[in-house]
Amino acid sequence: MSNKAKHWEKTKGQMIITMILWFFFGYVIFMFGENINSASFLGYPLAYYMCAQGSIIAFVVILFWSAGRQEKIDEEFGFTEKEDD
């Protein structure tokens, strides 16, 4: 497999992991909204908290984490850009 193809395989893998996390915080939690709302976090009902703040914060963290991982992948295969290009 060529360097490019390997890089794309890893990039795809990273994309799929990110999508799984996205799906969990965007959808899975709210499928069970009714069940988890009796639990509480910081004094808020859990499902309410997740849509008011929890999932949004999770999205921000996932984005920064995923961008960092992707940069490492690019570096590993020597595809890092020169800043002046």
Binding site: M15, T18, W22, F25, G26, I56, L63, A67
Partner: peptide, 20 residues
Amino acid sequence: YTYMAFLVGWTGGYILVSSL
């Protein structure tokens, strides 16, 4: 709570923007 689906929707899309 029902309306707050908009909050989740208007933020989560950025993961698609960044990854895809």
